[in-house]
């Protein structure tokens, strides 16, 4: 873990790192990664992954429309919107 890696993953996470904290964050992340490196000691050859403790296939429900149009309810919670859309700064000049 070095500052360059931290800068890359911060960008992937769309987070800005305060230059004042860069050293501390790099050191913390390095320590955490060292800590989880203990997992290397285990032989996991042929062991299947466990992604969810239930391991059941999600049940499907009848393919019927149940949602109501609540456009106004949701748009009014947006930081910026017009009658139909969420608004963000212009993307295409």
């Amino acid at each position: 873990m070095d500052k360059k890696t931290v800068t890359t993953i911060a960008y992937l996470s769309r987070l800005a790192i305060d230059p004042k904290n860069e050293d501390k964050i790099t050191k913390d992340l390095e320590n955490i990664i060292k800590f989880v490196d203990q997992l290397d000691s285990v032989d996991t050859n042929g062991i299947s992954v466990l992604t969810n403790p239930l391991e059941k296939t999600a049940k499907t429900r009848d393919d019927k429309v149940t949602a109501k149009n609540r456009k106004d309810t949701f748009l009014e919670r947006a930081p910026e919107s017009n009658e139909d859309y969420f608004l963000v700064p212009r993307v295409v000049e």
Binding site: V36, L39, D40, V42, T44, I47, S48, V49, L50, T51, P53
Partner: peptide
């Protein structure tokens, strides 16, 4: 190295 490995160890713990 990390995510898949951790999910395999999760299986062993279970």
């Amino acid at each position: 190295a990390y995510y898949k490995k951790a999910q395999q160890v999760r299986r062993l713990i279970k």
